[in-house]
Amino acid sequence: MRAVNKRNLTVVALIVFLAVLAIEHRFKTEPETVPVIEQQASASASGAGAGLAAPAFSLEDSTGKVYKVGGPRQKALIVNFWASWCEPCQLEAPELNKMALKYKDVLDIYGINVTSQDYKPNAERFIRKYMLAFPVMFDSKGKVFDKYQGQVFPTNVLIDKNGVIAEVVLGALTAEELEKKIISLTGS
């Protein structure tokens, strides 16, 4: 009887191990991009897809400053949805910092911690650890993430100066991929 229980335990442990490997492999694969849809955006054509006007929202950062998205702007924008426990988010944070500083004249980056799926003290530690050089807001109820039909972390929404979504990137980008997308977005 003991040998059967030991074998069953071994089989269950093997299944759990393989499931963890499969999940890890899924998160380490290439980021998925949502293709650009060729259509004209209008005030009534708002949504979370490429070619549509970015859904409007406003959120406060930890100092109480309000940041708004929606409509034309002076600079292109990347809205970065993240969580502190997300390993790809941790890998991407230093690169976003570099790009925020390098392209500060033509690009804004807004970090949005989806606090409804995170623990705020951990998010605050993440901000300090990576010394984020761009504004970070807390989506405490997940309403903004829902507006953008968020599914994975990180999700980067690239928005042009007209307030139109150029691309939605699911998953982390390499530094080179990120810079190419920024150059394309800003025309720099």
Rank of each mutant, 00 (worst) to 15 (best):
M1L: 05
M1D: 04
R2A: 00
N5W: 08
K6S: 06
V11P: 08
V12W: 00
L14D: 01
L14V: 12
L14F: 01
L14Q: 02
I15G: 00
I15S: 01
I15H: 00
V16T: 04
V16C: 11
V16S: 03
L18M: 09
A19V: 08
V20F: 14
A22N: 07
A22E: 02
A22I: 06
R26C: 00
F27K: 04
T29V: 06
E30Y: 10
E30I: 05
E32I: 11
E32K: 14
E32L: 07
V36P: 00
E38F: 00
Q39M: 14
Q39D: 08
Q39P: 06
Q40G: 06
S42V: 01
S42Q: 07
A43P: 05
A43K: 08
S44D: 09
S44E: 08
G47M: 06
A48N: 11
A48F: 15
G49H: 14
G49I: 03
A50M: 00
A53S: 15
A53C: 08
P55D: 09
A56R: 02
F57L: 09
F57M: 06
S58M: 03
G64D: 02
K65V: 09
K65T: 14
V66C: 11
Y67Q: 10
V69P: 12
G70T: 09
G70M: 06
R73C: 07
A76S: 15
N80V: 11
N80T: 12
A83C: 11
A83E: 14
S84M: 13
C86L: 10
C86S: 15
E87T: 13
P88R: 06
P88D: 11
C89L: 04
Q90M: 13
Q90S: 07
L91W: 11
E92A: 08
P94A: 04
L96W: 02
A100E: 03
A100F: 13
L101K: 14
L101C: 05
K102P: 02
K102R: 08
Y103W: 05
D105Y: 04
D105V: 04
V106N: 06
I109E: 01
Y110G: 09
I112P: 06
I112S: 06
V114R: 00
T115L: 05
S116K: 13
Q117M: 15
Q117G: 12
D118H: 03
D118V: 05
D118I: 07
K120D: 09
A123Y: 00
R125C: 02
F126C: 02
I127L: 13
I127R: 02
R128C: 00
Y130R: 05
L132D: 05
F134R: 03
F134E: 11
F134N: 07
M137C: 15
F138G: 05
K141L: 11
G142T: 11
F145Y: 14
F145K: 05
Y148F: 14
Q149P: 03
Q151E: 10
Q151T: 10
V152K: 00
F153T: 13
P154G: 08
N156P: 01
N156S: 14
I159S: 04
I159G: 05
D160K: 10
K161H: 00
G163I: 10
G163C: 14
G163W: 05
E167Y: 07
V169I: 15
V169Y: 03
V169K: 07
L170K: 15
L170D: 15
G171F: 03
A172C: 05
E177H: 12
L178Q: 07
K181F: 09
K181H: 04
I183N: 14
S184A: 12
